[in-house]
Design a protein around this nucleic acid. Sequence first.
DNA 1: AGGTTTTATGTAAGCGCTTACATAAAAACT
DNA 2: AGTTTTTATGTAAGCGCTTACATAAAACCT
Lengths: 342, 342
Amino acid sequence: MTGKDTHKNMATIYDVSVLAGVSLATVSRVMNNNTKVSDKTKQKVLDAMASLGYKPNTIAQSLASNCSNSVGVLVSQLDGPFYGPMMTQIETSLRVENKHVIIAAGHSDEVQEKEGVDFLISRGCDALILDVEAVSDEYLITLSNGDTPIVLINRYIEAIKERCVYLENEQGGYMATDYMLSLGHKNIAYISGPMYKLDARDRLRGHQRALAEHNVLFDPELWFEGNFREFGGIDAMQHLLTLNKPISAVVCASDQMASGAISVCLEHGIRVPEDISFIGYDNIPFPTYISPKLNTISNPIHEMGKMAALWVLKEVYKDKKVSVESCFSPQLFIRGSACPPK
Amino acid sequence: MTGKDTHKNMATIYDVSVLAGVSLATVSRVMNNNTKVSDKTKQKVLDAMASLGYKPNTIAQSLASNCSNSVGVLVSQLDGPFYGPMMTQIETSLRVENKHVIIAAGHSDEVQEKEGVDFLISRGCDALILDVEAVSDEYLITLSNGDTPIVLINRYIEAIKERCVYLENEQGGYMATDYMLSLGHKNIAYISGPMYKLDARDRLRGHQRALAEHNVLFDPELWFEGNFREFGGIDAMQHLLTLNKPISAVVCASDQMASGAISVCLEHGIRVPEDISFIGYDNIPFPTYISPKLNTISNPIHEMGKMAALWVLKEVYKDKKVSVESCFSPQLFIRGSACPPK
DNA sequence: AGGTTTTATGTAAGCGCTTACATAAAAACT
DNA sequence: AGTTTTTATGTAAGCGCTTACATAAAACCT
């Protein structure tokens, strides 16, 4: 081997066939065991493989079989509290079936999201799991008619609903506000996500429905459009405090915004929950360990990741065993960040 | 196309060559532009590609060139606060060079980490970026002699130090405790990571060095071996409080443990920092927004991710442009979780 | 002009598999 | 036993590229 030669000198199917005294096809057959091979020959082949330490070349398999056994996952952000748990589930679910995960980040930008999709498709992915927010519904509908199957996480598009794994966000929005109302709050501010996102709109709708059911008027002044991130919550709270309106509770469309908002209150000497009650959304891990422990609505993003993976296993790799569920219900978690108003 | 036919009916290099009126080899040459092709033919080929919407089949390229353009990344946990920022950097750095990232999780378990490595190698990765903690140094040294180049994040092994990207943990440990000492604290508890991890041992060593330099005796009773996670901090703090020893400051080897420990204090009515000062380690995003804002030592995990990616680009893909740096220095961040003792 | 070097392009042999088709052997019939 | 069906294995043609080698054309010599 010369210095330049970095070839991996692995045994090939040919070496196995020679050692086992059978043809290439037979070796391939025992690998894929989709065709009957007599027990005797099968054993010879397995022995040969073992003694050569044979590992199939997955690239060659992919080329010959036109199936790459890889699934592309495109998410908005690789960091942040959501992606990790979701990826864990996706990776685990797929790896047991020997599929692998190729990742790309879309950074909530339309161009980058499209580039990510193109990249993953050009990489020969057998399917795509997408958690995207900047591209349009039309784009996704068109994409779903292409050669590479897609499944969407956290997005609901009527025309391709069988490919969507989503949370009932309206219901979650309702639950959060309903909880505050049932504690007796009337002066409830709402920090929403950005309105161009469906989940933000749905949560807001739920909030409004709860108010209406309790005959509380929705005051647009008490609604601030945030960005789902901590800084959005900070900006929102600072703004709300300048209003000089009585506010006894703040419902936030994300835990991160709630954290930001709470930090502003604490800095102003406002006690949580004694002076203002809070509830977040998403049930991300961190705030549990911080005081006050944040009430929240669960967003089972990890389960949605798992379901998306199972969808791929079922629809693309024709795994009969799995059954998939696409609509998830939120759940209320009561901890220490809310109490009845004074 | 029959119902069963899921073939992607893409143009191949052959189609391009026919349309452009040149040979396969020429088309390949303009794609890889490593051999001179006359401007005229090159243009014909590019036009043909464009009009056919040609996209090279990366699987075939990989098989023929024995280079998969993919880099395997194996981390302990896909969730948690570290992985995201690290992955973001790795993905971004590699994608601009059109390399892709295949992920696997090791779950801090020796068997699973080794399986992950085998999995990624069998997937034909050109290189592996490993952030592993359960496998032994010997295993990694052996692995590094194999066919697939590896680079280690967050681990220092003398024998293969040129493949290690790491943080000067001893120095960080020193800085944290030195800071508390310089505020005037003498009764300093230390919540460490698990001792089987090198970084935990190094941080502890730094802590001890700082104490020694300030002539403060290291009291083993004030040292609790945690697990780097929130619950470890909770257990540690509960234990420390039962000691009935005066403690005016707690140095934690991770922000997550600091969060857990602080939450225990707050539950006991102990004020932070007035009664007990805290400092964490890692500078993870969340606690910044929570009160008290956590002092900490930075762990530039994202930069280390980037460096690992650049290492691969340089050493494996022979990219001349990049230069890599392997040793990172921690930095002290002072926020609101510490003050001088009463 | 004839010879030599350089440059651009073509030819064809793989890369390591899968799989349709062919064939030989065994099993199941009359 | 002879014929048909079933089953196990082999043969060989790809999958879509890369690249060593061959060759034709152009450019440079003296």
